[in-house]
Design a protein around this nucleic acid. Sequence first.
DNA 1: TTGAAAGCGCTAACAT
DNA 2: ATGTTAGCGCTTTCAA
Lengths: 343, 343
Amino acid sequence: MGVTLKELASGLGLSPTTVSRALNGYPEVNQATRQRVLDAARTANYHPNTRAKSLATGQSRAIGHIIPISTSHEIVNPVFADFIAGAGEVYSRAGYDMVLSVVPDDEEENAYRNIVARGSVDGLLVHGPRLHDDRITLLQDLGLPFMVHGRSSGVQTPYSWLDINNRRSFRRATEFLLELGHTRIALVNGLESMDFALRRRTGYLDALAVAGIVPCPDLMRSAEMTEPYGHQAGRELLRLPDPPTAFLASSMIVAYGLRRALTDAGLKLGRDVSVVTHDDDLSYMPNGLEVPQFTATCSSVRAAGRKTADMLLSLVRDPDQGPITHLMETRLVLGDSTGRHRT
Amino acid sequence: MGVTLKELASGLGLSPTTVSRALNGYPEVNQATRQRVLDAARTANYHPNTRAKSLATGQSRAIGHIIPISTSHEIVNPVFADFIAGAGEVYSRAGYDMVLSVVPDDEEENAYRNIVARGSVDGLLVHGPRLHDDRITLLQDLGLPFMVHGRSSGVQTPYSWLDINNRRSFRRATEFLLELGHTRIALVNGLESMDFALRRRTGYLDALAVAGIVPCPDLMRSAEMTEPYGHQAGRELLRLPDPPTAFLASSMIVAYGLRRALTDAGLKLGRDVSVVTHDDDLSYMPNGLEVPQFTATCSSVRAAGRKTADMLLSLVRDPDQGPITHLMETRLVLGDSTGRHRT
DNA sequence: TTGAAAGCGCTAACAT
DNA sequence: ATGTTAGCGCTTTCAA
């Protein structure tokens, strides 16, 4: 262990109270005393014990993130990592800890209740909201400040969230493919039980409707976003009697699989067929594709993590300010091997 | 907040001590009393305050993971997510919290010191060890139990680690390509300042040496493992006067980029050129490749996370047991579109 | 401007 | 088998 406040105080011939006040920036401390205390703390490498502090103040100075892992499949959404990294930066700077709970998705409610009752965090961040998400109403009841990364269409009462404009991104991506003359456009989407995936489909359907095209169910796929899924979807779509000439992939990793299926079939991307990808993170975007390449980005997931953490901390500091929300617009980045792009 | 132990006790007409003992499974409690307490705790939805508990016991029941993020590039290694998920499962089950600290890589030492001094964790997990890693000797000095995911070749004193046998994997992968008749084999490796990457290169060189082949510096690449890097490396390697006929990629994501470069160049995988990939996690492995496909796996990163967490908890419970280590052997999974594989 | 005393919620001797 | 007391390291009235 390190030095305690008491030890530091007795070493200086002061009371723990004064030392505490000096360290925490209370105004009523003598300048000279404060300086002495600060110096002593530094040389003694003093760090306050977090647990004692939070027991005394009633604040834990920690934020909880609950990562639901499905019991059925082993994949963790890779954007989590970047998002968490962004949020973590903000917490560190603000002197907050980040507590991660990995919870099987059939025990989520319990996990939330526990974490609140144990008082180990001052706020919570909800990941991967579904269409109807009980977690949100649960947290509203529990009264702990929380933010949602994404939205839940089924929840009517207001809550705090940050989301990217998925619907708009996908409408614009579809419009782009329509402009290129495509009429049979496949949507290789994520799991449509997730709110974001439904919004993406809605955007896709919006654009088709405006163009007067009746959506074809065969052209719409939905599953967990993995490379093998993209590959299989691509193969199956190409086997259709009237195969699509363009593909809209819901994530870069899905596009990789799709690309494999298309090139395996001897198709040349950008000549025989167009692929457009959506991903939140530029860092996954391959450059120099010969495909028209679309990336809807909120200038990286990392930044979204930062912004969400900022908002949550503000909520923790002032819980009475009411729900706060932020909708991030996406950029369109269309590129090919010549480096063209448009926004 | 929830109910406190004191409230629970006075409600039952018992002393807090007895209630504490009943709840924590001490043997000297009357069966009937224990049952009464347990029931009351359940109906009152009682959960002990973590901070108070850890202040009293001196144990925080939390494990820290420090994620170094480089200030120069924005990428978080995607295997972190899976590893963390596996570790998190174990912690949850054992009643431990997981605290994640995201730290700029130039402030790591400070971060470690702080976290130890503040006493917020009982143990630490070190990610991404470099060849010479000061963190390890630092932690040895600080005396907090810790595990390393990977090893650091430069550190001589014993410490606890879990690693996969990178050298052996890459030796076997290279041998496989040599058996196929290739003599110019490119190594598209990760950053060789990382310990794992150096071990992989060593394995590659081992196999070449046995075959009597002089390694060609032009054929060895090293960088952060991303898709664009794989792509660029592929393009550049193909432009060589005497280009490689086989490629060894250090991760699946690099292989994706490589594949793009090769197909763009009009090469047919498995006919004109062979690609072999290494990745810790099968879930990234595309099925049905027409390429001989190699995956060295410790049956998923997730499992490695679980195992490492198990070991760390055992270390936390009994710090005197001395360093424990575990070397995971890899499986070779060679597949093509017909589903063939060998181990 | 400083200190003494009480208390945050829990556990752990030391009684009984 | 149960209760009393003290204390973990810090903050926070209240008093001086």
